[in-house]
Amino acid sequence: MEQPVGIVLVSHSERLAHGLRDLLVQVAGEEVPIEAAGGTDDGGLGTSYNRILVAVDRADRGAGVLVLTDLGSAVLTAQTVLEDRVANDAVLVDAPFVEGAVAAAVLAGTGAGLAEVTQAAVEARDVRKL
C-alpha cells in the first residue's frame, strides 16, 4: 500500500485529542499516521501553533494531511499554521470532530487519497445516530 493520508486532531484539550487518537488507531491501525495536537504549550486548555505545526509535519508521509478541529479558535490557529506552512498538502476540513475523524481514518486505512478521505469526513455530518 502507498503511504496513507495523515490525520491531525486539533483540540483545546490535550486529553480529548489523545483520546480520539487512541480510538482512531483502534479502527484504522498503526499504519495511518494520526497525530494529536491538543492543548497549549504549557499543558493548559487552548491551542498551540507549534503543536499543530509539529503534528502536521509528523503526519505528512507524502499523501497529504487532513486536519480536524474541535472549536472556533482551534480553526483559526490551524488555518494560520496551514497558511504559513511551505508545503501545501494539508487540508483543514469542516467536519464533526469525532465522527469525521473516524470516517477519515477508516478510509485512510484503505489507501484512499486525500480528496476521498476529506469527503468521507465531511459526509459524516449527515450520518444519523437514530
Results as ranks from 00 to 15, higher is better:
residue 1 M to E: 01
residue 1 M to R: 08
residue 1 M to A: 02
residue 2 E to L: 15
residue 2 E to S: 12
residue 4 P to F: 12
residue 5 V to E: 01
residue 6 G to N: 03
residue 7 I to H: 03
residue 8 V to C: 09
residue 8 V to A: 10
residue 9 L to S: 11
residue 10 V to D: 02
residue 10 V to W: 10
residue 10 V to K: 03
residue 12 H to V: 11
residue 13 S to W: 13
residue 16 L to F: 03
residue 16 L to H: 00
residue 18 H to A: 08
residue 18 H to T: 07
residue 21 R to I: 12
residue 21 R to Q: 15
residue 21 R to C: 05
residue 22 D to Y: 08
residue 25 V to R: 04
residue 27 V to H: 06
residue 28 A to D: 04
residue 30 E to R: 10
residue 34 I to H: 02
residue 34 I to A: 00
residue 34 I to F: 01
residue 34 I to T: 00
residue 35 E to L: 06
residue 36 A to T: 12
residue 38 G to R: 07
residue 39 G to H: 08
residue 39 G to V: 14
residue 40 T to Y: 11
residue 40 T to H: 04
residue 42 D to A: 03
residue 42 D to I: 04
residue 45 L to Q: 03
residue 46 G to V: 13
residue 46 G to H: 07
residue 47 T to S: 11
residue 47 T to N: 03
residue 48 S to Y: 02
residue 51 R to F: 00
residue 52 I to R: 01
residue 53 L to C: 09
residue 54 V to K: 02
residue 54 V to G: 00
residue 55 A to T: 12
residue 55 A to E: 09
residue 56 V to Y: 12
residue 57 D to K: 13
residue 59 A to C: 05
residue 59 A to G: 07
residue 59 A to I: 07
residue 60 D to V: 14
residue 61 R to A: 03
residue 62 G to S: 10
residue 64 G to I: 11
residue 65 V to N: 04
residue 66 L to P: 01
residue 69 T to P: 08
residue 71 L to G: 03
residue 71 L to A: 05
residue 71 L to D: 09
residue 73 S to I: 10
residue 73 S to L: 09
residue 73 S to F: 02
residue 74 A to M: 11
residue 75 V to Y: 14
residue 77 T to P: 01
residue 78 A to V: 09
residue 78 A to W: 15
residue 80 T to I: 11
residue 80 T to N: 05
residue 81 V to L: 04
residue 81 V to E: 01
residue 81 V to I: 06
residue 82 L to R: 05
residue 82 L to M: 02
residue 82 L to T: 00
residue 84 D to E: 13
residue 85 R to I: 09
residue 87 A to W: 00
residue 87 A to I: 08
residue 88 N to Q: 14
residue 89 D to A: 06
residue 89 D to C: 10
residue 92 L to A: 14
residue 92 L to H: 12
residue 93 V to G: 03
residue 93 V to R: 09
residue 93 V to D: 02
residue 95 A to R: 11
residue 96 P to D: 10
residue 98 V to G: 09
residue 99 E to T: 01
residue 101 A to I: 15
residue 101 A to D: 14
residue 101 A to S: 15
residue 102 V to N: 04
residue 102 V to C: 07
residue 102 V to Y: 08
residue 103 A to Y: 05
residue 104 A to I: 14
residue 104 A to H: 06
residue 105 A to N: 07
residue 106 V to S: 05
residue 108 A to Q: 11
residue 108 A to K: 07
residue 111 G to V: 09
residue 111 G to W: 12
residue 111 G to P: 08
residue 112 A to W: 14
residue 113 G to R: 07
residue 114 L to V: 15
residue 115 A to V: 12
residue 116 E to K: 00
residue 116 E to H: 05
residue 117 V to W: 00
residue 117 V to K: 01
residue 118 T to F: 02
residue 118 T to I: 15
residue 118 T to Q: 15
residue 118 T to N: 06
residue 119 Q to A: 13
residue 120 A to M: 15
residue 120 A to P: 14
residue 122 V to M: 15
residue 123 E to M: 13
residue 126 D to A: 13
residue 126 D to E: 10
residue 127 V to M: 08
residue 129 K to G: 01
residue 129 K to R: 13
residue 130 L to Q: 06
